[in-house]
């Protein structure tokens, strides 16, 4: 067993704050309340900070370290198809696709939500419908994300949820790593 410090405090706090913020706004807070608006702005601010961190942060937080390419995605699928275990220290290519999907979707949810508060778009139907469709899309994505994390943890023998809490990945003996 070898231990690697992967996720810095900012990445972990960002992840779990986003979880709490999105869950609160999507499931618990009244859609027409001021609190819903403020939470929305806070989430957009949080993602903006993550985007900056992706450019200036430490190695595993940088987008350049986990930018998915067709070849790397096919590589991960080949590992799944052949039952090989090649571990990625940072985000996996498929995981990275989900990250960019969620960041983009939640930003668009924030944008359409903000548009509903402006005079120009207040009460405009397509804005509200887009806002709600994007939330449904984000919810589907989150369910897939959680299922994929469980599946990858079982496949590779690395407890991924714990790593996102403690920041440390514990890799099994003899594991091949592909950073």
């Amino acid at each position: 067993m070898t231990q690697h410090k992967i996720w810095d405090p900012f990445v972990r706090i960002f992840h779990w704050t986003l979880v709490v913020g999105f869950a609160a706004n999507a499931l618990f807070v009244d859609d027409d309340s001021k609190l819903h608006e403020w939470l929305g702005f806070a989430i957009v601010g949080l993602i903006a900070a993550r985007l900056v961190w992706g450019l200036i942060g430490p190695r595993f937080a940088r987008f350049s370290s986990f930018w998915p390419t067709p070849a790397s995605v096919i590589g991960q699928l080949s590992d799944i198809a052949t039952g090989r275990k090649r571990l990625h220290l940072g985000h996996t290519p498929l995981g990275a696709l989900m990250i960019f999907n969620l960041l983009g979707t939640i930003l668009l949810i924030g944008l359409t939500g903000w548009m509903m508060t402006t005079n120009a778009y207040w009460g405009v139907e397509w804005v509200e419908e887009t806002h709600e469709a994007l939330v449904t899309w984000a919810e589907i994505s989150i369910v897939l994300h959680v299922l994929a994390v469980i599946w990858e943890s079982r496949r590779t023998g690395v407890n991924l949820p714990r790593a996102m809490v403690t920041g440390i990945k514990t890799l099994p003996d003899g594991a091949r790593t592909d950073p």
Partner: peptide
């Protein structure tokens, strides 16, 4: 996958290394 490597003449230790398993 293991059977393929075996046909190619790899030993147990080498296959474990290639596949990243014990």
């Amino acid at each position: 996958d293991v059977a393929h490597f075996t046909l190619k003449g790899f030993g147990i230790a080498e296959i474990a290394e290639l596949r990243g398993s014990a």
